[in-house]
Each structure stands twice: as C-alpha cells, then as structure tokens.
Design a protein around this nucleic acid. Structure first.
Lengths: 192, 192
DNA sequence: GTCTATAGGCAGATAGAC
DNA sequence: GTCTATCTGCCTATAGAC
C-alpha cells in the first residue's frame, strides 16, 4: 500500500528532524530505518523540500485536531492550558523536540516552503492560546497582566524554550517545574 | 597572523551556526566568506567537532565576561535582569539565535563534545540568574512565587524560546513584548 | 600558514528494469 | 511501488608543495 509506506517515511523523518534537525539526517537514514531503499522515498517525496513540507503539514493538522479535542473536552481554562502543556510534555518524553521548535531554529538552513509552514504552526498555537486566555479571563478562571496575545506568546515561547533546555540538560523534570510555575502564576488570587 | 585568521573563522562559523545550525554549513561556506581555502581552516580546526567545541567555548567565555560586567555595573536586580535580556536581544537584532539555543536543539546531531559544552552554557546562565533573583528577593527588589532556581530556569527558557518564535515569525517585537511582560511580573507589588 | 590536488565517502536525485 | 545502477556534486579530511 502506497499510503502505509508514505506514513512510515513521515514517521521516521519526523523523529529524525525532532532529534537531529532537518540537515542532520539523510534519505538513507530513513530508508535503513524502515527497511527500503532511499530511491523509493523519492517516489513519495521527490525532493527533501517536499518531505519537509509534508512533515510540517501533517504535524500541524494533527496538532490542530488535538487542540479541537481539548476545546471540546475541557471547559475550564486551566485544564485546557494544562492539556496544551501535556502535548509538548509527551513529545519531550519521547526525547524529541517540538518539530516546529527545531525547524524554527534552523530557519535559514531550510527550504523556504518549509519555514513558511512553521510560521503557520506558531500562529495556530498562539491563536488557540489567545482565545483560551481571553475566555478564561472573562470567566474569572485565570488572571494575568497584559494582553491575552502577549501571555499566549509568552506561554508558547516558554514551552519551546523549556523543551530545548530540558532536553539539552537531560532533565525533563525541569520542563515540568518551569511550566507548572507558569500555570500557577495564572491562577486568580490565592487558589494556589 | 595565525590568531587573526582563527578568529575570523570562528566569527564566520558562529554566525552560520546561529542562522542555519551546525549541519547547515560547510568549511567551504566559511572559506568563501573570509576569502581563504577550506583546507586552511583544517590547519586551525582539524575536525568540525574541534571547530564546534572552540565555538561554544569562546561564546561561553565571552558571555561569562558580559555577566561579570553586568554584575559590577548594575546593583539593582531589575537592571541586571534587563541587561541579561539585552544580551539576547542584541543577538536577535543581528538576525541570529543564541548559539547554544540552536545547538541545544540539534543535540543528537552534534559531536558529543559540543553538546557537553552547551550544557555548561545553560548552567552558567541559570546560576547567574539564580543568584540575581536570590539577592534581589532578599533586598525586596523583585518578587516571585517559587524558588529562585525555578524562576531562573523559566526566564532562560522563555528567552531561548522567544528568540526562536520571534525569528521564525520575522517579528523581533514579539521578543520585546514577551520578555518585558515577564520582567513586569517580577516587580514587587505595584511598581509597574 | 596557505595553497593545490585529491582522496573517499555520502548527499540528493534520476533512469529504467521488474 | 520498489528495486539496481548511476550521475553529479558536495562533504570532511589529508598530503605535500610553496
């Protein structure tokens, strides 16, 4: 089946990007990992740029689906934010970085089509977070200084950075401490 | 002069790592940029791993010197923190990432000796920040929930992440909004 | 110290058999 | 769809002339 191989290529490539970066792996690495020849990969993704675009597209779509599922499942702002953190925490647990955190860093070494997609991912995150914060503040579920947009940007930046630092220091616990401290500050008055 | 060429190599290589990542440039890129042949670079840095180690070492030493200079110049915690942010902001202004933010992300695609050095950089930052926060809290210059260590980690993560996101979105202003918002929260009571 | 020349290998990519 | 075979070019790295 065509679809299955393509998915396996994407799975392998995604992990490689998340751990080594876009220029830190080759078609051969993927091929060996999934047991085919590198030429076969070109059948699905003619150029590495095509592969990169498909990678981020899938990642963003899946992430979007997760966000919608959170929005449906959790009504309280603090729960939604915690679930958002959970998405990143899960990735860190697999000893990976956020795909777009990695690619965003490598921007100038990427095919332009890929870096554009990365922007879209960040915008998606910030819009979702902004809406959660807006609504949460209106309902008195969270409290913060400044605009929801700024806090959303802050939150996203914190998560992306915390993954890099925690992974570099081989200490995932730092990610938890850091993100929990941020969530605590958002609590209205003295619920802590 | 041997020293001058070596420095020029490091300058060029540093910029390349900060914009494209460690695997996103070659000895030839450096050679063409500074007008020598790539073979000459091997005279100073036999392997790319050697180059990477020298790069982070110099970066860390310079950063350490800046931190000491800040400690001497600024006595108030808020000024020290603002100056710390300024170091990163300056890098972003050159359209670059923090060298160690980039290398920390690419960890698994790096020579092991390099990734070890990157850890040292993060530890240096966190120790300095922790001391500033400890002292600042004791003197009533800053206020925050949780331990100084956790807030230091948070701050560093925020800065590293904010650089990635701001650079990816081509909007350095985001970095300023995000970091200013964090500094504001650290102010005791209503000095804002 | 910097060069030319070159080794040896791997990269992304294509052609064409099956 | 996947393969073998191959192209072209770039990579890191070394040898040895100057």
């Amino acid at each position: 089946m065509t679809a299955i191989t393509a998915e396996r290529v994407l799975d392998s490539a995604q992990r490689l990007v998340q751990t080594r970066g876009f220029n830190g792996f080759s078609y051969r690495d993927i091929a060996e990992e999934i047991g085919i020849k590198s030429a076969s990969i070109h059948y699905y993704f003619p150029s590495k740029s095509d592969l990169g675009v498909a990678l981020v597209q899938r990642y963003r779509e899946r992430f979007d689906a997760e966000l919608q599922s959170i929005t449906t499942r959790d009504q309280e702002a603090s729960k939604r934010l915690k679930a958002f953190v959970g998405l990143f925490r899960q990735t860190l647990n697999d000893e990976r970085l956020c795909l777009c955190g990695m690619l965003g860093a490598e921007k100038d070494g990427l095919p332009p089509a890929v870096s554009q997609q990365v922007c879209d991912f960040f915008v998606l995150c910030e819009n979702w977070l902004t809406n959660v914060l807006k609504r949460g503040r209106k309902d008195g579920e969270v409290a913060f200084l400044g605009s929801p947009q700024t806090v959303a940007d802050q939150f996203l930046s914190l998560l992306e950075g915390a993954m890099v630092v925690a992974r570099s220091l081989n200490d995932p616990g730092r990610f938890d401490k850091t993100t929990n401290a941020f969530l605590r500050v958002l609590k209205p008055s003295d619920e802590a």
